[in-house]
Amino acid sequence: MIPSGFEYHRPNSVQEAVALLAQLGEEARPLAGGHSLIPVMKTRLSAPEHLIDLAGVSGLKGIRQEPGHIVIGAMTTQYEISGSPLLAETLPILRETSLQIGDPQIRYLGTLGGNVANGDPGNDMPAVMMCLDAEYQLVGQSGQRGVRARDFYLGAYDTARQNGEILTEIRIPVPPRGHGYAYEKLKRKVGDYAVAAAAVILTMTNGKCTMASIGLTNVADTPLWAEAAAQALIGTGLDHAAIANAAAAAETITDPAADGRGPAEYRTKMAGMMVRRAIARAKSRAQN
């Protein structure tokens, strides 16, 4: 519970932060809300020599609307996401998800950027971002690039972010007005990672599902985009059989670890169960 020594840096701009990262190399880690990094430092599972605190970097906070997109700054906190009227109207699944992360104290500090960038499969927002087909903006010394959330996660704590890059903002295509959505999370207690969780968005037209997307949390080394599961819903009335097919398809792509949350078999089945429940709830919310 006592971290190793480290140098603390507090740059004022993205350029400055990126320059520090380049200069300090692999022993430097960007620090956002700190709710993943600080605990692993306290247990000495991680001992970075330099922390580059992004809290003072201007322009990394805020939620704005662009044509067809919502853009969220990486340092926007979970609390700010859950309280945003703009997100409540355009991307209500974000509010539903953020309210299931940690507890109020954690949500005051924990950021969206930190949640999606560090590659912890237990984090909730990555699967939601895959579900929504969000794009992450990464800035390094050589410039800026966008990476789709669906391409970002390579393994546990292993992402497409290069050393020297900082994730600055998240661009999310706004789903059609009247879409149904749900984030169903099974957890042991408040503040825990999911046993399994499922993010679903879908649209219904004349009683048929015309669009669907499903993301899964904490049932593999990475968050999962359950493409086939969503495909099983298209064109159906989201009847019992269609939902069962989607759940079964979702279960097949899981590869969870056995841990205190339960054996792998259970967590796979719970992924399916969360998919079922999320679809049912999303359906009940969708305008037809």
Binding site: L186, R188, G262, Y266, K269
Partner: peptide, 16 residues
């Protein structure tokens, strides 16, 4: 009586 243990009990009884 963790959730997963109760689920296993239910599974063992053929409830799934």
């Amino acid at each position: 009586h963790h959730a997963w243990r109760l689920w296993k009990v239910a599974d063992g009884l053929g409830l799934h």
